[in-house]
């Protein structure tokens, strides 16, 4: 786990942000994370399983998420491995959400000004 500040991880890659956002509701396994992201983004972001687990490994190494044990599968087969967000992950998620809010506000301000100028 890294000892550097959480701001080092910003800006987060869009799918890293969505994964953390999904895990903010509680521990999840891979399939549940993919479907949660798909539903929340209205199908705009559909992660492939290898993309998801490459990100899971990267974020686990960065100390943003950790393993939360195994639980029985709802379908057939062996238990699924669950992942949860760490305190550091929560901190990074909040900083990233704040950064996005500020960026969106700045964009609104600039685009609003441009629209006003076009009208006048």
């Amino acid at each position: 786990m890294t000892t550097e500040g959480p701001r080092k991880h910003l800006p987060l890659a869009p799918h890293d942000f969505e994964i953390l956002l999904s895990l903010s509701h509680g521990p999840m396994h891979g399939y549940a994370t993919i479907t949660a992201i798909r539903e929340r983004t209205g199908g705009d972001m559909v992660l492939g399983t290898s993309t998801l687990y490459a990100a899971v490994r990267r974020m686990r190494r960065a100390g943003l998420i950790e393993e939360a044990g195994e639980r029985p599968a709802q379908s057939n087969g062996p238990p699924r491995r669950y992942w949860r967000m760490t305190e550091r992950g929560d901190e990074v998620l909040r900083l990233e959400a704040d950064r996005i809010r500020r960026a969106a506000a700045a964009a609104d301000s600039v685009l609003g000004d441009s629209a006003e100028m076009r009208k006048s």
Partner: peptide
């Protein structure tokens, strides 16, 4: 190394999907 860590998880998620 990626497959050793997450190969089983990936296959199960693909099976569910």
């Amino acid at each position: 190394d990626l497959w050793a860590e997450h190969g089983r998880d990936m296959n199960e998620a693909f099976y569910d999907l």
